[in-house]
Nucleic acid binder design. Structure first.
Lengths: 222, 222
DNA sequence: GGTAACACGTGATAC
DNA sequence: TGTATCACGTGTTAC
């Protein structure tokens, strides 16, 4: 094992009550006493016999507890080569830092991934999705597709005053000329907009940037 | 601090070379000797003075290293209330297990999330996707959402003769009454249709089934 | 043989 | 007051 090495047990029959390695008995035993006297005259306050025993036992218990923790720790730290306490602690520390870093990375990654998913769902509402929760995701959903210089924009969002104008001005800012637009209310508070536009010849942008632009415009409006 | 409590320093001026608490000097010092003799006659092999000093120093170094590790460990384990060694170890163990579990969960989650993303991309045409291949996914895209008895249908498909009639008849078969419909051509061969309809009062179906029905109707047409 | 790690008993200290 | 924790020196074992 290496860590738990309960010494030699001194061939002691009963571990519970024969607490001391033989030499210590001199102190405990009120007969030898030279050693006792020496220490006594040193100025220290000595304890009674039973109290000393209690103290020893308590210390043993404490040590045992610590040893158990060390064993438990070494059990869950993978790749331990050396099993001595210092190495266990050191490797545990390294492993812990490593895990923390990993969690951090994974959480960030997951966060981004779920962001992307939301964007996906926002961008394209999945009617045939198995998950019914998809219907309760935050609006607006903005979707755009390019075909040469034509642009098809679909927006599904909350009904709100001044929104069509905002969208149109945003399209103008993006150098788009509206060919056809259709706005339909759906339910009590939903708005569904379909727009076909033409992109100015000299102007060029990616679909992604365009959607981003529209989205930020929406955010500033909310 | 709690952990690092380098005792009382014994008012020792130079820590480096005055290694022993006073009473130990008896053993080291070859004059008192009763204590010495007692221990000597016990059968132990005694060490030389310098070796004993080395031993003591080595042990000190070891203890110091352990203490440092303990401090380092307690520094990276969050939410430590008690700072004694056993608690530090125990909490570190709990924290470590907790972290391992978290990593496991997160890794699984990340794996699933990326799967979902792929499904999303396959199911729904992503206009703003970075991947240009998304534009070549099989049409049609059919999307529907319900709000009480209202239905919003969006279809993006290939331009094809007799398609609007087919859709309308399909809606009728699904007991839907068209309130508003907007059909727009996009590019040279794409068709974008937006329909708002009302579901007959006595009739009820899920969005999923509805989309399935529409989709199968499209397939029979192709 | 020397380096290193360990458990032990012990006095001191903090609450 | 007791209870608990600590650092220390020490003997012992393993490589």
């Amino acid at each position: 094992m290496g860590i738990l090495k309960p010494k030699e047990e001194e061939a002691a029959s009963s571990k519970s009550m024969e607490p001391f390695p033989s030499e210590i008995l001199f102190s405990q035993n009120p007969f030898g006493t030279q050693n006792y006297v020496l220490k006594g005259c040193h100025g220290s306050k000595r304890l009674g016999i039973s109290q000393t025993q209690d103290h020893i036992m308590a210390e043993r218990k404490r040590r045992e507890k610590l040893s158990q923790r060390f064993i438990a720790l070494s059990a869950i730290v993978p790749g331990l080569k050396k099993m001595d306490k210092a190495s266990v602690l050191g490797d545990a520390i390294k492993y812990l830092k490593q895990l923390q870093e990993k969690v951090k990375t994974l959480e960030e990654q997951t966060r981004k991934k779920s962001m992307e998913s939301v964007v996906f769902v926002k961008k394209s509402h999945l009617s045939a999705a198995d998950n019914i929760d998809d219907f309760h995701q935050p609006l607006p959903e903005i979707e755009a597709r390019f075909c040469d210089k034509s642009v098809l924009v679909r927006i599904h969002c909350e009904k709100r005053k001044g929104l069509p104008e905002k969208i149109m001005s945003e399209l103008e800012k993006s150098h788009l000329t509206v060919i056809n637009s259709n706005t339909v209310t759906f339910g009590s508070s939903a708005l569904d907009i379909t727009i076909v536009a033409q992109m100015d010849i000299e102007f060029c942008m990616t679909v992604k940037d365009f959607v981003k632009k529209l989205r930020s415009a929406f955010e500033s409006l909310m």
